[in-house]
């Protein structure tokens, strides 16, 4: 059979291995499985980046109709990732620091790190600089849901906090208590 790449309706180019029936089964051979896991992680993260998806849940493999159908299912060969396989893929991502469980103390939902917190910190700081908001106190909401869409639109609060922590450590931001919660003041200055 011919394994070909495929462009999904959302414009994402699926790799040819996604057309292999066995790709959707957890492999008993550890070497093969390692290859598959590497491919899956790469696929999940690049799709997340393509569609700006921050979260993947085991439910996404349980019910169709979610954001992840294009990746977790292949209707052309009638294969799908079963929930237990997704659970183990998620755990592999967590162990490689490419995702973290959110909320903590459960294993059914993760925030995906298609950018690491350090990279998000740089994105946040450059956005603040570019929009002239250095030294202004910003609420979390103003960052996650700005009136003009930004590279940070929709970022989960837990991930934003991690990025801010990176900035405060290097003296590029300050966490500030404001009336209705907390805010952040971005500071000029190099790394």
């Amino acid at each position: 059979m011919q394994l070909t790449t495929h462009t999904t309706p959302s414009g994402f180019l699926l790799p040819s291995i996604h057309a292999a029936h066995a790709f959707f089964t957890e492999q008993p051979n550890p070497i093969t499985q390692n290859t598959f896991v590497n491919n899956w992680i790469q696929l999940i993260l690049s799709y997340a980046r393509h569609r700006r998806l921050f979260v993947i849940r085991v439910e996404d493999a349980e019910v169709a109709g979610g954001d992840w159908d294009e990746v977790l299912r292949n209707e052309r060969i009638n294969r799908r990732v079963i929930p237990s396989y997704l659970t183990s893929l998620i755990s592999a991502m967590v162990s490689r620091d490419l995702a973290y469980y959110e909320p903590p103390k459960q294993t059914r939902s993760v925030v995906l790190l298609w950018r690491l917190p350090e990279e998000w910190a740089d994105v946040l700081h450059s956005w603040g600089t570019a929009t002239g908001q250095i030294n202004t106190i910003l609420t979390m909401y103003e960052i996650t849901d700005p009136p003009v869409p930004s590279p940070l639109s929709g970022i989960p609060l837990s991930l934003l906090r991690r990025a801010i922590t990176v900035l405060t450590r290097s003296g590029r931001a300050q966490l500030i208590e404001v009336a209705d919660g907390e805010g952040v003041r971005l500071l000029a200055g190099g790394k």
Binding site: H21, A22, T25, N29
Partner: peptide
């Protein structure tokens, strides 16, 4: 499958 890694398993064969 197990020893040589020459084939893959598909557990969803129709």
């Amino acid at each position: 499958l197990l020893r040589d890694g020459l084939c893959w398993l598909d557990a969803q064969d129709e």
